[in-house]
Simulated scan of single mutants.
Amino acid sequence: MDWDKLRIFHAVAEAGSFTHAGETLNLSQSAVSRQISSLEESLNVALFHRHARGLILTEQGELLYRTAHEVFSKLAMAEAQLTESKDKPKGQLKVTATQAFGSSWLTPVLGEFIELYPDVQVDLVLEDRELDLSMREADVAIRMAPPRQPELIQRHLMTVHLNVYASPAYIKRHGIPKSPEDLDNHRIIVYGDDTTKPPVKDIDWLLHTSAKRDGQRRPILKVNSVYAILRAVQSGLGLASLPEYMAQESTALVRILPEMQGPRIDSYFVYPEELRSSKRIQVFRDFLLRKVAEGKLTG
């Protein structure tokens, strides 16, 4: 297969239209269309269903796209390894983390890392879903559970503790619960999203410690962002379980029912085996581990 046509096919499959692919490739819509038609003729298969709203991959097109995507991802990884200096870390470093961890702790310490390694271009992607490192959706992930893929290297980063917090304004208005059973009569805020997997296991543990007959509390608010839960608690809307590292950043929060502890969550620094020798990843890993040792990232 012609590599140039394959590159154009990959761009079209990603963009979903000849026009958008042409903008990415700096080619005209007609030039892109001709190259795809030529590729289809050489393979003697249709790669796209063409319709008024855009393009949809055929079954054969899906097969070729998956293969091409893997090839181009591995080529990008090889290029990064070849261009990286052996002595000085440089190049793009794409890091993914959950929204709560990334916004509360990781982002504030990145300034120091960038000062230390100005030739490393950090690209931070905050997603509660797990990006596929093997497909180069990111170089490094900070995950709140051990990776399931055996080809990924993992390093334990920290243990996160979940506690119950409220604002002084909430306590003034509704009182402070004296026992776990008292929570049945309080306004509880929890993580809620029926469409995606929660960022950590048992994140809504507060709902399952009720003395009610069905063992379930009813939340006053469900929101699919731990950071939004923090803001809701700060505003006095209700009580919530929050990671200790987030609550420590907010002097306005009060820990309640200290005898109650939620799940302990182990976080991991994860990256693909192919990037084991990457200087960028090595220095970033060591930087975060040093912050943990200094107490900057305790959970």
Rank of each mutant, 00 (worst) to 15 (best):
G22D: 01
Q35R: 15
L39R: 03
L39A: 06
E40T: 08
S42H: 03
A46D: 10
H49F: 08
L57W: 02
T58A: 00
E59Y: 02
G61P: 06
E62R: 04
L63V: 08
H69I: 00
L82C: 12
K88P: 00
L93T: 01
L93P: 04
K94G: 03
A97W: 02
A97M: 05
G102S: 09
S104E: 11
E112A: 05
D128N: 10
L131E: 14
M135H: 08
A138W: 05
A141P: 00
R148W: 04
M158P: 00
V164L: 14
Y165G: 03
A166M: 13
G175A: 12
G175W: 13
D182S: 14
H186Q: 13
V190W: 04
D193L: 03
V200H: 09
V200F: 12
D202A: 13
I203Y: 10
W205Q: 11
T209L: 11
S210L: 07
S210R: 08
R217T: 08
R218A: 09
I229F: 04
I229Y: 03
I229T: 07
R231P: 07
Q234P: 01
Q234R: 06
Q234T: 02
L239E: 05
L242K: 10
M246F: 10
S250E: 14
E259H: 03
M260I: 12
Q261P: 02
Q261M: 14
P263F: 03
D266V: 01
F269H: 07
L275E: 13
K279L: 09
R280I: 01
I281K: 05
V283P: 03
R285N: 09
L288H: 10
V292P: 04
G295W: 13
L297C: 06
